[in-house]
């Protein structure tokens, strides 16, 4: 029987074999077989730890004795929201995120428009511009710290040379200039990503339409708004959302440049949560701070989806 089967061409005269009786894609268990290993991974390394972290946020737990947790209900949340330092952290987080979004998307748009024109060496220019995005965050933090070094940093030397030097030169130690410096570094690393994404969105802009608008006597700005902006608007919205979420969770760059200092001038939620866990050894409050960040992200995502849906409806009408 088996010998006979093998001599036949596959799938021609096999008849109602076991395999043929199944649904075209195999049994109903097939998808689970495909996804099981990955799902197990995500369950073990993401879902379970997240649930533990949610539990921790309702407890008082010390890093020194993490197995003994005392249930405190909403105690951690009450405490952090009553703490002016935490409100300051929220404010810094807000400023940091908004500035990252505006800075990265705005710079990205300008650079994308600049590189969208045809010129010799455009390919090389596009490749070079992506270098900051490709550089590892750790190396970026290191070179930024060196360039901003109070005594020998090139930034201070240049600022001094034009008479704009920060007194004492210690930009990263100054409560006033540390956040702008960290922001500039962040945006420097992000703008290649936004500009490359916007560049590909710009390919969909009908050039003749832009020209027609200009012919009609519309100024450059007016034709940009009427044509280009309409095409890239969804991409801009998407990038703004991505930048928001990424900036809410960014850690290394800020931590390595300033550790959240001086006097909390660069302390975002993630920095605050890390120092609560590892400096103050308060795992409960750290988890609560982390939850606040996660909830903010969720609100932003849900909100943006609702807005996107409303806009879509508007467009259909």
């Amino acid at each position: 029987m088996t010998v006979l089967d093998q001599t036949r061409a596959p799938g021609t005269t096999r008849g109602p074999g076991a395999r043929r009786r199944r649904s075209p894609l195999g049994s109903k268990w097939t998808p689970y077989l495909f996804l099981a290993p990955a799902a197990l991974f995500i369950l073990v390394f993401q879902a379970v730890p997240l649930l533990q972290e949610i539990y921790l946020s309702f407890t008082r737990t010390s890093l020194l004795n993490p197995t003994r947790s005392e249930w405190v209900g909403l105690g951690n949340f009450n405490r952090i929201f009553g703490d002016p330092d935490f409100r300051h952290t929220l404010l810094i987080t807000f400023v940091y995120v908004v500035a990252c979004v505006v800075g990265a998307v705005g710079t990205g748009l300008v650079v994308a428009l600049l590189l969208n024109r045809g010129f010799r060496g455009r390919g090389v220019a596009r490749a070079l511009v992506t270098i900051p995005w490709a550089a590892p965050g750790i190396a970026v933090a290191l070179i930024a710290t060196w360039m901003l070094n109070a005594q020998y940093g090139i930034v201070n030397r240049l600022l001094d040379a034009v008479g704009l030097g920060v007194p004492g030169g210690a930009i990263l130690d100054s409560p006033r200039y540390a956040l702008p410096a960290v922001l500039a570094t962040t945006i420097w690393q992000l703008f290649p990503f936004t500009s490359v994404v916007l560049l590909s969105a710009l390919q969909a802009v009908p050039q003749d339409l832009n020209e027609a608008a200009t012919m009609d006597g519309a100024g450059r700005w007016a034709s940009f708004r009427a044509v280009t902006w309409q095409v890239i608007k969804p991409t801009v919205g998407l990038l703004a959302l991505l930048m928001t979420i990424w900036s809410l969770r960014r850690f290394e760059l800020i931590w390595l440049m300033t550790k959240g200092g001086p006097v909390g001038a660069t302390e975002t939620l993630v920095i605050d949560l890390y120092s609560q866990a590892f400096d103050s050894k308060e795992l409960g409050s750290a988890a609560a701070i982390g939850m606040v960040g996660v909830i903010i992200s969720l609100i932003v995502i849900t909100g943006s989806r609702l807005v996107a849906r409303a806009v879509e409806k508007e467009n259909v009408r």
């Binding site: 730890p49 921790l56 866990a277 982390g290």
Partner: peptide
């Protein structure tokens, strides 16, 4: 949207 810094404590125990 989960920051690594948030997950590091439970992952350490794991």
């Amino acid at each position: 949207m989960l920051p690594e810094a948030l997950m590091v404590v439970p992952l350490f125990a794991l």
